[in-house]
Write a protein that binds this DNA or RNA. Sequence first.
DNA 1: ATCATCACTATCCATAAGGTACCTATATAT
DNA 2: ATATATAGGTACCTTATGGATAGTGATGAT
Lengths: 128, 128
Amino acid sequence: MDSDDDSPFGYDAFQRTCPSHTVLEMLASKWVYLVVCALRRGRMRNGELARKLEGITPKMLTQTLRVLERDGLVRREVFPVIPPRVEYELTGLGRNLAGLLIQIRSWAEEHAPDIKEARARATEHQDA
Amino acid sequence: MDSDDDSPFGYDAFQRTCPSHTVLEMLASKWVYLVVCALRRGRMRNGELARKLEGITPKMLTQTLRVLERDGLVRREVFPVIPPRVEYELTGLGRNLAGLLIQIRSWAEEHAPDIKEARARATEHQDA
DNA sequence: ATCATCACTATCCATAAGGTACCTATATAT
DNA sequence: ATATATAGGTACCTTATGGATAGTGATGAT
């Protein structure tokens, strides 16, 4: 009850400079959450990630990893061998973000039923 | 270190049924975060919200409020007077979500500098 | 000689989110 | 008669995102 102010408006109303905006934009990307969760187990190769996250296309996997690398959440290590070998792992910041994701997941699991119930009631009323 | 498993994969790999997906999808919407934060102060009329969230268009404000209402986060009360008067307020679930948003904001404010630094380093290297 | 593997990379396309502009209704004020 | 305030709705357009598809280079296996 301390950071309990309206402060998103303190930055320029959620434009590019607001930290929350930066973070929520990251989390909104469809695969970021899954990739970070997958990497919590330890370093992994591109192929292992692709198998773990079934449904992801190579393009989206690479794209997601590049963004995470650019933002300092993932470290990328290339071994100069043939065939190529590349390993990814979370940085300290990345592991820290994983902690936040777990908080979000726990909130989600606790309250998803309420949301679903509300949605069900809403579609009922509109059908009526 | 308890919900410390890989469980997003327990649901069908982040498809529609995963609670985290539902919640992150909500938060990803550009205005949800701002509207919920604004409503933490108490009930408000459409016009007040519009003034507080400068930059939002009437369309997006209405659309955002309708989604929040449908999901049970906001209660909408219409007074049958002329000119029309409509008030919005957070439900219990909505106030609860606001709590999560504050956690996210606090993480964001703590770590945004690291992310910015990483991005700066990344663009440096690409320019070089 | 051909194929598969690994880790991408490039290109195109469909969808959807968000933005712009204009429309509604009614009562009061001028 | 006209303008204003209120709380929207609707049609249309642009852009960003994600997904599908195909291609790259090098080597080892068949």
